[in-house]
Design a protein around this nucleic acid. Structure first.
Lengths: 365, 365
DNA sequence: TTGAAAGCGCTAACAT
DNA sequence: ATGTTAGCGCTTTCAA
């Protein structure tokens, strides 16, 4: 069942292949009757242009890649990424372009990057300094970095440090002194450098302590997996080793929810005996029981912004930008009620510098 | 910043383009020193083969498409699809192939299908009879149908009717007579034909009633959106119009969870005043409060099976298969406890015919 | 061991 | 208005 090509159509319609191409791409150039004849022939034959040939010629496939530094199964299992992809998808969809998820092939991103039929990449959670980014440059397609720093490409981040600081500050202000901090395991290549999102959030927590003349002890900081089970076991284990926290700061909602589960099992009431603040505001946060107080970050918007940036760069070679979206403390039911007029207590400062609280855009470099 | 091509490498290494190609794909053919020289040149230049050119020639891109008949934003927002994609992704990942989500472009799937640079499609929720499937044939690439019937392609389904029957039977057996059934809105092209998944589940519920000499009244069946809000408002509205159900059968978990939310708001206790059984067993079902009793279907496995089938067809032109995976009633806390030795009460019969309860494979047609 | 050259299917500049 | 033709970048016979 060989695929029918432009030649077959040309033959059947008694014209050249150029005519067929024109009939599809620029019908005005041809006499109307010819166009009809060609289109009829195409339909009868069931002709559809070969996307690879088209891509080869036009140097454009109409597909964007989203690069994850981890197996694809773990990304779809993660509500955070689902929301992020939702944002990306909403703009690719509206522009009629495709979305390809790109993940390591046999452990290496390089092969995956080289082989991906895409016009550009959105990369998430990968610092530009990362070795995996080199192949991207080789590939010669534009990319934008999300949740990571970049010198030579546009980037989209949120104010992780500000958000974390707001969360810690809230708890400290209320008098908590026994606070358990749950953070991610460091990625293998990063070790203890506290780079990226994890480092920024940790710095935010720590700064709030320091500002009050307190310190965040190392044994109050537990690193674990970014999963329900991770948060659960981390809390349970801390408890088992004698920790008696009155509050939890979790660097991700899913870990926070896990910690709440463990706390409930240990007979603690949330927020009565234990106040908990997560990070991210994934959809599950609002649905958990009790509903999780958290640092909201605009996950979906982040995907949208990054994708628009990439498309603009593709279409017009637009300037690089460095965007930082705001985060905010969102109080729900895992913290004890305050005045509670608005659910939003504070909007963390946008940008790590002194810019206002809205989107921060830095000029091209 | 023009992309470096095989010609550049050939020039730099002082060989022909053919030699460069050989160095990469069949180094044995060349003298070792030549290979090294070529590879060095390639590295220095930062050469990476153009995936489009490669695809054009080999008629293979190494990418599979997943076709959704709906906007991409709604698919990532839906936990069911996330699990499904997780299954697909786990096998594409392990085979080192890419995953492209394909959704309607400007309302039409046809353009999207024609333009997608893929070697084959997994299509979900689209009956083969659907008009949108014709372009797929034109495209000339193999595809497998999930959650839909197919004559000319392989298909993967679950025993929807059996599962639904088991759920209804469980409730009826316990004496419930006022049962509210929540089902999907019919897709526009399907109208009232009760085709596909929706029809099969509804038939399963109905059969359980009929078998006991009861009937499932039309006003006990509410059609709504497959969302939390859909289930919530459907239940609330039924209640408002005087319905006083003692049990709910929901054709999807998310609607079931929505209904529970509405019930709680109305002061009903689940499962005390109201027993609820969902369908699908999405991850959220286990995490809801109370944990949702449901008909488990192997969502992730379905994705895996479909993808393996497709890859086999691609690689070896394997035979078509028609697979039906089993469903089972899974009792958690939204139904009142029974003996409760095992959480699994019954395994619905696999297959709509009389096959056993394991995977049903029909021979090629 | 290496290279020349013919495609793969399509587009578009340039004829006619 | 329609056709000729030269690529796009790579692979792969076939010949040298």
């Amino acid at each position: 069942m060989r695929r029918v090509t432009i030649h077959d159509v040309a033959g059947k319609a008694g014209v050249s292949t150029a005519a067929v191409s024109h009939a599809f791409n620029d019908p005005e150039r041809l006499r109307a009757t010819t166009v009809t004849r060609i289109l009829d022939a195409a339909r009868e034959l069931g002709y559809a242009p070969n996307p690879h040939a088209r891509a080869l010629h036009s140097q454009r496939v109409g597909v964007l890649g989203v690069l994850f530094p981890q197996p694809i199964a773990t990304v779809f299992a993660n509500p955070f990424f689902a929301s992020f992809l939702e944002g990306i998808g909403s703009v690719t969809d509206e522009r009629g372009i495709g979305l390809l998820t790109v993940t390591p092939v046999g452990g290496s991103l390089e092969r995956a990057i080289a082989a991906a039929p895409v016009d550009g990449f959105v990369i998430i959670g990968l610092d530009e300094r990362n070795a995996d980014v080199a192949p991207l440059r080789k590939r010669g397609v534009p990319f934008v970095v999300v949740d990571g720093d970049a010198e030579t490409a546009s980037s989209v981040n949120v104010d992780d440090e500000g958000g974390a600081h707001a969360a810690a500050e809230f708890l400290l202000e209320r008098g908590h002194r026994e606070v358990l901090v749950l953070t991610f395991h460091a990625p293998p290549d990063e070790l203890d450098k506290d780079l990226g999102v994890r480092g920024r959030r940790l710095r935010g927590y720590r700064r709030a302590f320091v500002e009050r003349g307190l310190s965040l002890d190392d044994d109050a900081v537990v690193r674990t997996f970014v999963t329900l089970a991770g948060g659960d076991s981390a809390f349970a284990q801390a408890w088992a080793t004698g920790a008696r926290p009155t509050a939890v700061l979790a660097a991700s909602d899913i870990m926070a929810i896990g910690a709440m589960r463990a706390a409930k099992r240990l007979g603690l009431r949330v927020p009565g005996d234990l106040e908990v603040i997560g990070f991210d505001d994934i959809p599950l946060a609002a649905a958990s029981d009790p509903a999780l107080s958290t640092i909201h970050q605009p996950i979906t918007e982040k995907g949208r912004v990054a994708t628009r940036l990439l498309i603009r760069e593709l279409d017009e070679g637009g300037p690089r930008e460095r965007i930082v979206l705001p985060t905010e403390l969102l109080l729900r039911d895992s913290t004890r009620a305050q005045p509670k007029k608005s659910r939003t207590l504070a909007i963390a400062k946008g940008g790590t510098e002194r810019e206002g609280k809205r989107t921060l855009k830095a000029a091209a470099r």
